[in-house]
Amino acid sequence: MTGGELTLGAVLARLEEREREIAAQAETTREQITQLTAQLDELGRAAEEVRITRKTLLALPDPQPPAPPALKLPDHPAYRQIMTVFTAADHPLRARQVCEAMDLEIAPNNVRLKLKRLADRRILAETEPGLFTRPRQQSPGIQP
C-alpha cells in the first residue's frame, strides 16, 4: 500500500469518529427539542388562559354608569314654586321674571338668593350673571 491509501483500520476509525459526532449532535438536538417542547407547552397554557379570560370578560354584563344622585331641593315651599316656573319656561329667566311668574311682589333680591342657592346645588344653571335656567342634562329625580 502507498501512503495515500487508507487502511481498513483507518476507515473504521474515521467511521467510528463520525458516528460519535452524529450521536453527539443527535443528543444536542434531542435536548433542544425537549426545551422547545416545554416552551411550546407553556405557550399553549398561556394562550388557553387568555382565551378563558376573554370568554369570561365577554360574558360579563356591560357596566352601567352610576346614576347621578337625586338633586334635593331646600325644604322651603318657595323653591318648589320656583322650579315650577322654570319647568314651564322655555328660556332663561332673571329673578324679576321669576317674581312676576309667581305673582309675587317684586322682591328680586330675595328670589335671586334662592336662585343662586339652586345654582350652587346644580339644580339650576347661571348661564350669565343674574340669568338662570335648568341645566341641559337635568336629572329626572329632583326630590322635594
Rank of each mutant, 00 (worst) to 15 (best):
P68L: 15
Q39K: 05
Q39R: 05
K55R: 15
A89Y: 08
P69W: 13
A78E: 14
P65K: 08
A78Q: 04
M83L: 15
A78H: 09
R80M: 00
L58T: 08
A78I: 06
P69Q: 14
G44W: 03
P77Y: 05
V50Q: 12
M83T: 11
A89P: 07
Q64N: 11
A38H: 09
A70T: 15
T53N: 11
L40R: 08
I82K: 05
Q81W: 06
L60C: 09
L57V: 06
A88C: 09
P63W: 10
L58P: 02
P61A: 02
K72E: 14
A46F: 00
I52S: 13
L57T: 11
L71D: 13
T56S: 12
A47I: 06
A59R: 13
R51G: 08
Q64C: 12
I82V: 08
A67V: 11
Q64D: 12
L40A: 02
D41R: 10
H76D: 12
E48R: 11
M83Y: 07
V85M: 09
R45G: 02
T84L: 08
P74D: 09
E48S: 02
D41Q: 14
P66Y: 00
T53W: 13
A67N: 02
A38T: 07
F86P: 10
T56A: 05
Y79Q: 01
A67F: 03
R80W: 08
T56C: 01
Q64K: 14
G44S: 07
L43E: 04
T53Y: 13
R54Y: 13
Y79C: 00
A67P: 04
G44K: 01
H76G: 04
D41S: 04
T56K: 02
R51H: 11
T87R: 13
A67L: 07
M83N: 06
L57I: 01
A88H: 12
Q81T: 15
I52D: 14
F86W: 01
V50N: 06
K55Q: 14
L73Y: 04
Q81I: 05
P74Y: 08
P63Y: 01
L71Q: 11
L71P: 05
L40F: 06
Q64T: 10
A47W: 01
P65D: 05
H76M: 06
T56L: 13
E48T: 01
A47D: 12
D41V: 03
H76A: 09
L58V: 02
R80C: 06
Y79L: 00
I52H: 10
P77C: 04
T53P: 04
A46H: 05
P65Y: 11
R80T: 03
P68M: 09
T87K: 10
A89E: 09
P74T: 07
M83K: 07
P65G: 13
I82F: 12
R51P: 03
A70H: 15
L60G: 00
E42P: 00
I82G: 07
V50Y: 04
A67S: 14
I82A: 02
E42V: 01
